[in-house]
């Protein structure tokens, strides 16, 4: 198992590249989701305040 992980000596490069990919994809996915829920809450709060005013 260990020699598979070592990737013929280039393990550190291969895994760091894949790790970075996972990080960037996670940032895009989570960022997107959080942005969406934040916008929904902001818009809903804005509508509620407009309702209260009018």
């Amino acid at each position: 198992m260990m020699e598979v992980l070592s990737m013929g000596g280039y393990g550190s490069f291969v895994w760091s590249a894949y790790g970075l990919t996972i990080i960037v994809l996670a940032v895009c996915i989570i960022g997107g989701r959080m942005g969406h829920t934040k916008t929904i809450n902001d818009v809903r709060r804005r509508i509620r305040t407009m309702e209260v005013k009018s």
Partner: peptide, 12 residues
């Protein structure tokens, strides 16, 4: 030529 280092192309 590159051994296992070439596997990075699968993300690059």
């Amino acid at each position: 030529q590159q051994g296992d280092a070439f596997r990075i192309i699968y993300v690059h």
